[in-house]
Design a protein around this nucleic acid. Sequence first.
DNA 1: TTTATTCGTGCAACTAAGTTGCATCACACT
DNA 2: AGTGTGATGCAACTTAGTTGCACGAATAAA
Lengths: 137, 137
Amino acid sequence: MINTKEIFEKQGIRSTTCRIDLVNYFTKNKFAISFPQLEKALKKHDRTSVYRNLIFFEEQGVVHKLYDADGILKYALCKDNCAEHLHHDNHMHLTCNKCKHTYCLNEKHTPKIKSPKKVVIESVAITARGLCENCKN
Amino acid sequence: MINTKEIFEKQGIRSTTCRIDLVNYFTKNKFAISFPQLEKALKKHDRTSVYRNLIFFEEQGVVHKLYDADGILKYALCKDNCAEHLHHDNHMHLTCNKCKHTYCLNEKHTPKIKSPKKVVIESVAITARGLCENCKN
DNA sequence: TTTATTCGTGCAACTAAGTTGCATCACACT
DNA sequence: AGTGTGATGCAACTTAGTTGCACGAATAAA
């Protein structure tokens, strides 16, 4: 929490309370988060600021977009290997049937998809339903 | 087109013009269709009827739901092997970057995903982006 | 340090998607 | 013909996502 500001400044991202609160909320929740949820969690900031900073963060490679198993747009923190405009979000996501949260799964569990001859596949999103680490027991 | 009514009656589905127009629209378009698109295409019927019949058809195993690469809810005709409440939509979907349509791909191209030890995977949705059969050339 | 420029914020308003309640109409079954 | 269930049409509404614009804050140049 304490060094979020420093990280921003290193990346040339102007550090504002809205942005700091945003990343802090992401770091303390280990799952993907929707805009409506962020809106409620960060009520002290305007919806629009949160909304635009999400877009900004995505452009900067701080977070990545994903659609969960119910088609809900969510955002999750990128790992370090996510560079600007070059997301390595080649990992799958798991929406837990019990706690309803959506988590990023490790890249090594994600299969490579081979293109059928008839079509061309450029990228793939894999979204699973099941039980997360906490809920499976 | 001519035997849609018969098929309905065989399955015990009451045959109405709205329902017939709906399946006919699906059979003549070989891609998945969103509710807003159906709304425009079937203007002679009320939005609500179209909407509720989509839900009804999904329950009956006539169509299946999917989210395309942009998180847009779409519906596609089920193959014959889709029984009521038991959809075999274990196939992946491809959203074409050129024509923007979303197609069902053959099941044999869809990899089986193995569950990582830490979590439990019950079902998987795979959505690809790329070029469809018509647009790839 | 004042000024200019750029960037971030807040407010309002709006589009579009998805959903529900209710009255009415059509059909099938006594 | 009468009754009950199923399908439709209309209206209204919730929620998500998005945009324009004016104001405020921070940075850079004069």
